[in-house]
Write a protein that binds this DNA or RNA. Structure first.
Lengths: 212, 212
DNA sequence: TTGATTTTCATACCAAAGTAGGAAAGAACA
DNA sequence: TGTTCTTTCCTACTTTGGTATGAAAATCAA
């Protein structure tokens, strides 16, 4: 669009301007060919940088700088090429020398470009090494079986204390109930576990992970 | 400086070119102003995207490809621009075409060389991954403590059966001894373990690994 | 509100465990 | 041969554990 209006303006100036002004405009138009791309590049880059920073939170200053250097390098080389052309057209230098010089210049440009923009990456290879960790005695309550046997909360409490070696009287004191209560629970517990005595109950409970 | 020489060239062409050709040159110069920023903009955007992807995925090839495409695009554009210029200067354009082609070729060559010479480093990082080993109850008899407590072989036998839930009578039958014998051993055992009842003895023995 | 389940408690009685004292036989070691 | 320890066994007695029966209160779900 900007160029479109430049063309329009050029046409206008061309119709109105005398021969001298037309010449000056054309000269500065050529000057704009160098500056415009550079300015445009910067602007586009800046916008891109902002966008990327928002989405990815990355630092693009180096890349920004790289593009600037790249643009300047191209501009300088383009100028140099044109200058050589002009000298050749005006002063008629050797053809082979000119071509050879061009080849060297642009090879170096390519190398410089690649090295500048392609930084040697360090590729990280992650190797997972399994280390066996001894798992300490890790016993888990057999909740499913507890539900299946329909052991009540109180019964489990008594079973646990029984396994710790407490007598009925001691269990009663511990739970703030009477001896009769403990005996009642014991009866229910033994019946559910199908055992005859506390030692059997404890042994079975351990084997079945009803207690830890 | 570049513009200065462009001015010089234009003066020359102005002196040689007819009025019509001068106009056409100015228009196409303006046309170039549209294409360059647009292509540059696209390239920049694409490059940013590629670089971002690379930094995330660490894909080195994509970065190279981007650089190549970018360089080639600019080189082709430069060639096209020159070709257009030459067409309207009314020179023998085979020479300028040749020079422009040389520039493109050697830029690509330079890029290719640099990429060839720069190899990515490979760094190996070892990550230890802990794997829990399913370790079944792995209990070992505490022989040292058994000796320290001076538990006899018979006492240990009885302790083991007691933990399995056998009554005194059942233990006696099991070991082909009388009930009195078992009671005698129990007394000795309880005394050595400093406990008052079988459930305490069993609990303590388990905790101290006197039985499995 | 009703019914089922859990928790609590008591009584009477029997079985098993635990205590204390004593003794004999066998095995191992100095 | 004598000593010590282990194993075996008995008796009398006390304490604890287990069984059976019955009932009341509390909690929870329908």
């Amino acid at each position: 669009m900007l160029s479109f209006f430049i063309i329009l303006r050029n046409l206008k100036l061309h119709e109105k301007a005398p021969d001298l002004q037309e010449k000056i405009f054309c000269y500065f138009s050529g000057f704009g060919n160098v500056i415009l791309p550079a300015i445009s590049g910067i602007r586009n880059r800046e916008m891109e940088t902002i966008e990327v920073r928002i989405s990815l939170n990355k630092n693009f200053i180096l890349q920004h700088k790289g593009t600037l250097l790249y643009g300047l390098a191209l501009a300088i080389l383009m100028f140099l090429l044109k200058w050589l052309e002009l000298r050749y057209i005006i002063f008629d230098h050797s053809f082979e020398l000119y071509v050879g010089f061009i080849a060297v210049i642009f090879t170096a440009l390519g190398i410089w470009l690649a090295l500048k923009l392609s930084k040697p990456k360090i590729e990280t290879v992650i190797v997972e090494k399994e280390v066996a960790v001894a798992n300490p005695e890790n016993r888990v309550l057999n909740s499913a079986l507890i539900s299946e046997l329909q052991l009540s909360k109180r019964e489990l409490e008594i079973l646990d204390l029984m396994a710790k070696g407490l007598s009925n009287e001691e269990i009663a004191s511990s739970l703030f109930v009477s001896l009769s209560t403990v005996k009642s629970h014991n009866q229910n517990l033994f019946s559910k576990l199908d055992v005859k005595r506390r030692t059997q109950a404890v042994d079975k409970a351990r084997r079945l992970n009803l207690i830890l």
